[in-house]
Write a protein that binds this DNA or RNA. Structure first.
Lengths: 174, 174
DNA sequence: ACCTGAACACCGTTCAAGT
DNA sequence: ACCTGAACACCGTTCAAGT
């Protein structure tokens, strides 16, 4: 006797993203998600293989959301501030995306704009090297900030600007 | 009737570090630690408040081990390669230390050598800014490497060297 | 064809009882 | 004074039974 589904993969991922932000990754339990979409935990396994697969779907959805929010810019400042603003609003999503929980395909696709920027700043021969320098610095900085690693005082905003300025000039100087 | 302890906090932390590296943070269960030190899980609570406190002790022990392994160097290349080599040998410890699981005191103490390097490269006025640029880049790079984020081909070793070279010249140019 | 309750193996944690 | 078994509340996951 066929019955229509009472939930959907979209509703599950959407509810999961909200739970992730409000309760962190440990709070993203199958039971919490099930309750949010109005179903019992075992029913989720009709739509998703297991919790790990769900976490990957959430990470990929967050990565796509990030890509849509980043300004189409040609300068490091715009990209850096865009990423930092997105991370400040969705810290748990940021952590998930940059902790390697996403799929390799989505991670590669999301990094294309940075390679373009790397080409602009570093030149054709060092496009990838420059993109990796930029990405490592900006994701490292934001991760440290979210982890509360800046304990030695000083102006964190100024340190971010300092990084943007020094990296821009370092990459332009061929 | 007093009885001597059958284990110790040192044995617990030491066993925990080995379990962390071999089975990851999810594998670091109270039961696994208890078995490793020859005791039942409830006994661990005589030595540690709860699992979170144990994880913090492990992170701090790893951070101290890292500080002891870093070369006392005045150049970025030595520091960067030293950190990367340590991370390659103890990837789970590296992740734990730089994910904010450690205590703030140990994190601050461990970052002192980088501030010294920042002063050498960036000058007195920008010692902290330079230290944060360096730390953000090198930890970001290694985190990406461990997360398998370098999927676009190219030479990762060369990208690391490129970062060292560009950062060194960017910071020296006052 | 999907949803459910019941069940299983695992967690972290508490606590009265043993020595 | 430390260790233990038993217990509790919680996980993820499976599966036969319902509709």
């Amino acid at each position: 006797m066929p019955t229509p589904p009472r939930t959907s993969i979209d509703a599950i991922v959407s509810a999961s993203r909200a739970i992730l932000e409000s309760h962190g990754l440990p709070g993203l339990t199958m039971q919490a998600v099930a309750q949010a979409v109005g179903v019992r935990a075992p029913s989720l396994y009709k739509h998703v293989a297991d919790r790990d697969a769900l976490v990957t779907l959430v990470a990929d959805a967050a990565a796509r959301d990030l890509a849509a929010h980043l300004p189409a810019t040609e300068d490091l400042r715009g990209l850096a501030h865009g990423l930092r603003a997105w991370a400040a609003e969705r810290p748990e999503s940021y952590r998930l995306v940059f902790s390697g929980h996403g799929s390799l395909e989505v991670m590669a696709a999301t990094s294309m704009p940075v390679v373009t920027l790397g080409r602009t700043l570093g030149g054709e021969a060092h496009a990838l090297d420059a993109a990796r320098l930029i990405t490592a610095w900006v994701t490292g900085f934001i991760s440290m900030e979210l982890a509360g690693a800046f304990q030695l005082g000083g102006d964190v905003e100024a340190a971010f600007e300092y990084g943007i300025e020094r990296l821009t000039s370092a990459l332009s100087a061929n």
